[in-house]
Design a protein around this nucleic acid. Sequence first.
RNA 1: CGGGGAGUAGCGCAGCUCGGCAGCGCACCUGCUUUGGGAGCAGGAGGCCGGGGGUUCAAAUCCCCCCUCCCCGACCA
Length: 574
Amino acid sequence: MRMSRLFLRTLRDDPAGADIASHRLLLRAGCIRQVASGVYAWLPIGQRVLAKVAQIVREEMDAAGAQEMTMPIVQPRELWEQTKRDVDYGPLMFRLEDRKQARYNLSPTAEEVITTIVAGELESYRDLPMNLYQINWKYRDELRPRFGLLRAREFLMKDAYSFHIDVDDLKRTYQDMYDAYSRVFTRCALTFRPVEGEAGEIGGDTNHEFMAMAAVGEDDVVWCQKCDYAANAEVARRKSETVDGKADAPAREKVHTPDMPGITAVAEHLGVPAGELLKCIAFDLDGEVGLALVPGDRDVNPAALAQAVAPKRARLLADDDFAAHPHVVKGYIGPDAESVALVIADPMVSAPHGWVTGANEIDHHVRSAVLGRDFEVGEWADLVAVVPGDPCPRCGSPLSIDRGIEVGQVFELGTKYSEALGALYTDEAGAQHPMVMGCYGIGISRIITAVVEEHHDEQGIAWPAELAPYDVHLVVIPGKGDEASEVIKTADELYDALANAGVDVLYDDRDASPGVKFADADLLGVPVRLTVGAKGLKRDVVERKLRKTGEESELQITDDLLTVSAEELRTAVL
RNA sequence: CGGGGAGUAGCGCAGCUCGGCAGCGCACCUGCUUUGGGAGCAGGAGGCCGGGGGUUCAAAUCCCCCCUCCCCGACCA
């Protein structure tokens, strides 16, 4: 491609509002342009990268036995009502009506559609397993789109759905997908980590999230340096067990703590560390009040609490709720508050201890509250949010926490959708069963964000070879003298020779200064840069520079570079 | 949705308090010079100042309403 004809305008200045490297560089390099909040156009350079990522995903999915198809983006709302996910998704769905006021939505995902289609096509155990995928645009009306492609409202996703006779068979495909995903992200040159994940709106059981490790990531990843334990912070747990023992503490004593509803203030006022305080978090439990107890220097992990009380639903009390429960005094809650349906505590609270905690009375706390003497715990469960240094639940070694970008997820779905939508198969004995399903997503456009975050420098992007929009960036510097036309002729010939050898070349034939051309080459990030200039040609060489490492070398162009076989040329250049 | 900020040329911004010819840098066009890391000089083109209403002799500027975009938070396959 000759740059003189390419639809590309690079930006010299940073665009306003692009705060992370990937967003800034993708805009500056002319890969994307914003059209609306969280909605982007893909310009030719970006389109090529998008296509390359999609192709990698396609190759690995096909190799793993999945079959590609395409489903509509417009989906009838009725399907979503059949699985109740219409309500689960709520305002996250883009909704629309046609001229007859029939209700539709734009696809945020496609479990309902694929399950309905499969229900009509597959009927026998002989037809299973089946694994189907598509690469298509998805839509979510995010509360707050941000960071360019990272949290967009329109994004390209590969979504796959597998159908099985039983869970054992599902597990085989699940593992195949897990392995395929590892190959995809390795080929994309991402530093990634598969972690135990959170179920979200899809619902289901076992699942793993593939996290590209990046400081701008929106998820916290808890991982162990010794063993292979890794989990999204929402589901991560620390090694913890309740201990038996009597606290050797004096009698409980009420203390005056005026206007101190917070842990920090009370700890300072009484001169004790925050960890000596007992934090009591009130939550609504299907209309009743529950208390969650953790040490004062710890936070309750809401996802852990939700799991602990399931299938009931826990919701932290809002300010308004406290009015309805006068015995629960916000800021001064004690574990022995009246009319509490459930007291649930993290095992850390079982340490023999005289706790400082709320007195259930405004402006008062108590000292020396002792478990078993002054308050009781109804249920024990891991509730605290993990912090770095906590013991690994598997091996006890210290845990670390880093940020990650979720680029893929694999789920064991079970029969939620097949039951709701009637995807049944007949077994050998003639009996009907719901198909057991799995689903598997990869954020194609989001991968590009993660890749640029990991592969860039001050000058611009440094694409990994497999994703680069072009293989070679050929720069011609004609110079001023009589030899200028000869230099251009040589560059033209090299361009043609490379193209004939099957190399994708971006040829900077523009009438621009060398500085502009080199700066754009660095910004665009094509892995190999070849420079044809009068300076080099005097010695019969073209210069070769690698974008990633800056490593420079020279290629002799005398007799044969333009006449060698395609294979030899490829080897010499790439 | 709560809090904060911004809409002025393709991009980045000034002008707004205190109403009076719509500006600067980069980019773009023409010419000359230049040519190995974002060239110089000269000339030029490009604006619904987010939209609507109001005040005024006069509105980018003041008032009211609306829209859009960005940042923090809540939320999140």
